[in-house]
Design a binder for these strands. Structure first.
Lengths: 138, 138
DNA sequence: TACTTATTGAAAATGATTTTCAATAGCGAA
DNA sequence: TTCGCTATTGAAAATCATTTTCAATAAGTA
């Protein structure tokens, strides 16, 4: 299971690898949908019955801190999480089924330079997210 | 006061123009920072003492519905609102002082075409937000 | 001016998230 | 392998933001 990398990261950062964390990590790692804490809880409990919702919150917090997962912002809410991807990536969300695709290769240098000039801001970061319909839903 | 436009819009859409709504509209309309409901409440109460927090929530809801304000997504949270701007605009936020600038003229057609081809998605919308330091803070 | 009814603020209800706490279990050291 | 320290656990309680309920009030039209 590739989720092992996440467990290693937890361990390497001084966190213990427990059955509860394994269930949460497996669930989030393997999902192509952004999951809310409750959704993670429901799915992870199939793997580890006695899991508590509190532990889901605490584990998501640590995974986010280690940049292994990221919060997904959507019109309906911003409580869902998905894998952080590797390197500088952005998200593309299917408005119909909620599936998430990653992409990279956004070159916004020309745009940010122009905006910096116009606004007088020094631009440091950008958030870019696309919405549409995935191959199956369109 | 230019906020009159927003009051007119409320009125034209069948909503009544009340002292409470005037206070909320004035506050949000004149702010260059994204404000949370509580922040709006605190500021608007200086203009209208008996204002209730519930009315702030209800008024923000209507302003958003009329596309006069928009929700601002940030790492610290997504409860803040700011004027919606006019036409297709994006936000540029100062990480230091929280000031918000608007910009337009993002041409992402080439990017979205390329992403669409790679991912098989049909792209419909994009969210773009920049972070940096404003002229004063940099 | 009068009347209809949208709007109000307070209090209660809800829902999500966080804290508290005693019991348990990881995992490094011996 | 066993031991012991202490991070982690789940349940319950606490907190925080937001929404609903409701009777009193006031906007705006007739």
């Amino acid at each position: 299971m590739v989720a092992d990398t996440w467990l290693e990261q937890l361990h390497d950062n001084g966190y213990r690898v427990t059955a509860a964390r394994r269930a949460v990590v497996d669930t989030v790692h393997s999902s192509t949908h952004a999951l809310t804490p409750i959704e993670v809880y429901d799915q992870a409990r199939k793997k580890y019955r006695v899991l508590g919702l509190v532990t889901v919150y605490r584990t998501l917090e640590k995974l986010e801190e280690l940049h292994l997962i990221q919060r997904v912002h959507q019109p309906q809410g911003c409580q869902a999480f998905i894998s952080a991807g590797i390197g500088h990536q952005h998200l593309l969300l299917c408005k119909n089924c909620g599936d998430v695709a990653f992409f990279e290769g956004d070159d916004l240098d020309a745009l940010t330079a122009s905006i910096a000039k116009k606004t007088g801001y020094q631009i440091q970061e950008h958030w870019l997210q696309l919405f549409g319909l995935c191959g199956k839903c369109k």
